[in-house]
Simulated scan of single mutants.
Amino acid sequence: MRGSIFFLVGLVLAMFCAACTSDSSGHGQAMQAQAYPVKTMSPETVELQDVFPALLKGKEDIDIKPRVDGFIEAVYVDEGAKVKKGQALFKINSPSTVKALEEARANYSTAKIDVERMRPLAEKNIISKVKLETYENAFAAAKAALEQAEANMTWITVTSPVEGVLGTISYRLGSLVDNSNVLTTVANTTTVMAYFSMNEKDLYDFMLEWKGETKAEKIKNMPDVKFRLSNGREYEEPGRIETISGVVDKTTGAVSFRAAFPNKNGLLLSGTSGKILIPKVISNALVIPQKATFSQQDKIMIYKVLGDSVMQDVVKVKSTPDGRSYVVFDGLESGDKIVTDGIATLSNGKKIKVQ
């Protein structure tokens, strides 16, 4: 009986020791440091882009309005058509203009007859020269009115003042129009203007980047700019900044810029929007992958390697054009080491192995 008891006690002790050994071994494996990829910061040259929303307009965007009142009798063009300077676009049936011409002709004939009738009388001193001058002045006024009425008749045909592309046609056959109505718009888009703006702070920082004593000299030294279409693709032709407004908008607190882009193929359309991309080359920049960062309370954080453990730190960054990396402006120095991947499994003070 006693032997059986000793046997059972020994069996229990053996099982307990085995469990302890197993727990100790598992715990040791859990405490073993995990390997992570690490990058050592070193300066490099990188190009960033300042991005600003922009609106496109043609070099000339001209509203086409009739100069006489009446009904649209003919439409000679269609929307989106290319038109030449002086090309007929619309014809206006203008009864008031026709009536004005008829009245002007009648007044001219009457005034002419009066002068021809009074001149011999003035030569014979039957009437005074002052009286004759009155008739002559009336004749001159009637002649001028006739010339104006004849000129008005040429306005019944509405022509394009420039070469360009036709916009939407707002009025069709039979529509009653006057000089307050915009029939369509002609946009000269051989060169397209991109309008964008900066706030005061960005403007001063931006202007300090470029050489030159005057604004004109700085504009001359600015690099070519790019335009990103609304579908995300970049327009193939580079543009140039041409003007910077000298007045801050009181409502928005912004300063307007204008950049010009060649548009030989007509891809850029007046009235469309996109983004202006202004390149900025930075030397001695520290670049980190975006996957090495995480957000915490609107701050960008990284894990800095200190010996065999990691420590959270805040960095100030700006995204690179490819959207995969950040340029660090504060929070890291050359020679610092950071974990570049797997940061979701890290915590402050955790021990790691450098992979």
Rank of each mutant, 00 (worst) to 15 (best):
V162I: 13
I169P: 00
G167M: 05
S96E: 09
V192Y: 05
L132K: 09
V182C: 04
A100W: 02
S197V: 03
A88F: 03
L176H: 14
L132S: 08
E123H: 10
A100H: 04
A151D: 05
A106W: 00
K91E: 15
E103R: 04
S96K: 14
L166P: 10
A88H: 06
I156R: 12
Y171C: 07
R119T: 05
E102N: 08
K85R: 14
W155C: 03
N179F: 15
L132W: 09
K84L: 04
G86S: 14
K143N: 06
V115G: 01
A88Y: 00
K131E: 12
I156V: 14
A140H: 13
Y135F: 15
V83N: 08
S96W: 10
I169W: 04
Y171W: 15
L173A: 00
Q148R: 04
R172W: 05
S197H: 01
A122R: 07
I156Y: 06
N152M: 08
Y195T: 13
M153I: 12
P120H: 13
Y108P: 00
K85L: 12
T134C: 00
M118T: 01
T189Y: 07
P120E: 09
V115P: 00
A88M: 01
T185A: 07
S96M: 13
L146Y: 10
Q87G: 07
A140R: 15
S170I: 07
I127H: 06
F90T: 06
S175Y: 00
V83I: 14
T189K: 00
V192W: 04
V77I: 12
A187Q: 06
T157E: 12
N199E: 10
N107R: 09
V192Q: 06
N199T: 08
F139A: 02
E133L: 11
E79T: 11
T190L: 09
Y171A: 08
A122W: 02
S128W: 09
E200R: 08
M198L: 11
E163W: 02
S94Q: 03
T97L: 05
F196D: 03
R105E: 07
T191S: 06
S109Y: 02
E136D: 12
M193V: 06
V177R: 07
F139V: 01
E147V: 15
A140K: 14
V83E: 04
V165Y: 12
